[in-house]
Amino acid sequence: MSGTKDMIKVEGLTMRYGDYTVMKSLDFNVRRGEVKVIMGGSGCGKSTLLKHLIGLERAAAGRITYGDDVFDPDGPSGEAIRRRFGVLFQGGALWSSMSVAENVALPLEEYTDLKPAEIREIVEFKLALVGLGGFGHRYPSELSGGMRKRAGLARAIALDPEILFFDEPSAGLDPLSSRRLDDLILELRDALGATVVVVTHELASIFAIADRALFLDVDTKTALCDANPHDLIDDPAVDVKVRQFLKRGETVSNVND
């Protein structure tokens, strides 16, 4: 890989469902090794943006670049880029017909030539990393919501990805589990040296993990700001909407008032 600082670069991305425009002309970048949070109110298109980034939806316009390679989900290079990331879906999205261990093992079986014994060891290790050691034989339906997410995380990191995507990691988790997951994200980032993109609206998570946060605004259909949330919250130059979001709607002083 070349030495460019940007891991992901999004230029002029317009997302559309049929006639409905979700976001238009988005420009932003994700630096190598940072934790980037995509935030915004419900229904603003956060998850849609994530689906575009991982190639599940096709952009109406604009392009997404990973390192130096333009990401074309349908093209031959798309596969190679896909292999560089791991995704944790909202509900974990474990394959329900397979046990947890088989879930984590599948990417390894598909993309490596490791022997079954080695794969078994790796799987046990990855499950231990997310605190699910000894749960490998269980099926997804036998796990709680939080455990499913952690199992999904173990699967996402099975191939030691360069980029980790999280779709609402703390949704449906109690505050403690959510906190543990946040810590886990940061530890994994440090351990794997990975770049992390998180879609969330949980304020506690945003402040705990974000290096930079991108705020998607449903009214203007654009990103309003892209900076560290701690800097955003008291900066009068920042759009009121963003500061209100970060302060749970408490009144914010506005220079224009």
Binding site: I54, R82, F85, V87, F89, G91, A93, W95
Partner: peptide, 13 residues
């Protein structure tokens, strides 16, 4: 519905 198909695609499967 469960995003399991998306998960397959995201792994390039």
């Amino acid at each position: 519905v469960n995003e399991e198909v998306d998960a397959l695609t995201s792994f390039g499967i």
